[in-house]
Simulated scan of single mutants.
Amino acid sequence: MTPSATDAEGVDQTVLTLRKVLVSETEPLARRFRALFSLKYLACLQPPTENTLPAIQAIAAAFASPSALLKHELAYCLGQTRNRDSVSYLQHVVKDVEEDAMCRHEAAEALGALGYPESLDILKKLRDDANELEIVRETCDIAVDRIQWENSEERKAEKLKPSDFTSIDPAPPMPLDAKEPCIPELEKTLLDTKLPLFKRYRAMFGLRDLASPPDLATAVDAVNALAKGLKDPSALFRHEVAFVFGQLCHPASIPCLTECLGDLKEAGMVRHEAAEALGSLGDEEGVEDTLKKFLDDPEQVVRDSVIVALDMAEFEKSGQVEYALVPGGNATTEVSGP
């Protein structure tokens, strides 16, 4: 059993309706994802509101689902809340050896994103367990470094480039120094497998920020540098590169994402991230047709990701403001529709 996620009296009806959609195994997966991102919106509001804890509890309630894709996304969303109430749910998932490895990895990464030192003991224990899965150990290693950085004097002294992205990332970008950011230097750090993963991730997110907006002079070179990371020996690292491409929505990433998705020997967690990244580029010519080729993929997590990606692609073409069942005046009507 997961920690209690029971409803409190007086919970807003929109939250209850969104929760009902999210936890329902009969609802289409794409619709459940839209409900999740609506709940994430509520759970991440700063300062917290009366809906914050009920939204966190609603997200956590869906960890009972058999869908690894959905559960890994739940963990990611909880990691973005900046809220201590998310910690116990994520610790439960990361410690559960019966849980899908992709979900445990995402829970560890989310604990790192939250940055609370009380998670360090659990993360260090898993990091140092030689019998633990590599993906879990690697993620815990990065999460430990991130929490330690978050609470360090070093962090206070660093000057970071303002980012176009509001996400709490597994690692901050490289700090600014007196000279202009150098893509070849960041690429060298990105690809150096002898360096700690946390440092390499910092180079990754530094390159990401040099690729946004898409018409930035450095964007294509930064995308091409990131693409080389898709050949890294670490599946965890490759999946994070694909995730970054999903954030960037840069057309220059389409060829390498398509190759990644089409490689049936690639890890499912990497291919699924490539599919969702392509979904964010759904208004680009040929992307939807590419995704549809994988609707019957041998791997469940890839099939599910393609379903969500095609829904994202439809959203990109529709001109809607938010990929969510947006809370607000008519949110309940939208959520309970066909």
Rank of each mutant, 00 (worst) to 15 (best):
A113C: 13
Y116H: 15
A108W: 13
D85R: 09
S119A: 12
D96N: 00
D141K: 00
R82K: 01
L90E: 07
R146G: 00
P162D: 15
L90G: 09
L133I: 03
Y89N: 07
N131D: 03
D141Q: 03
F165W: 14
H92Q: 13
D96F: 01
C77H: 07
N151I: 10
L114N: 05
R137Q: 09
H105I: 12
E134T: 14
R146P: 03
K159P: 14
T81N: 11
D141G: 07
Q80I: 09
R146T: 08
C77Y: 05
S86Q: 12
V97R: 13
A130H: 03
V94G: 01
I142A: 05
R127D: 03
A130I: 04
A113Q: 03
D128R: 10
D100L: 00
M102N: 10
A130E: 02
L126P: 00
L126Q: 07
Q148N: 05
Y116E: 14
L120D: 13
R127Q: 04
I147T: 03
H105E: 14
G112T: 01
W149D: 10
E118W: 08
A130W: 00
E153V: 04
V144H: 06
I135K: 00
T81G: 07
A101S: 11
E106L: 00
E98R: 07
N151M: 04
Q80C: 03
R82P: 00
R127N: 01
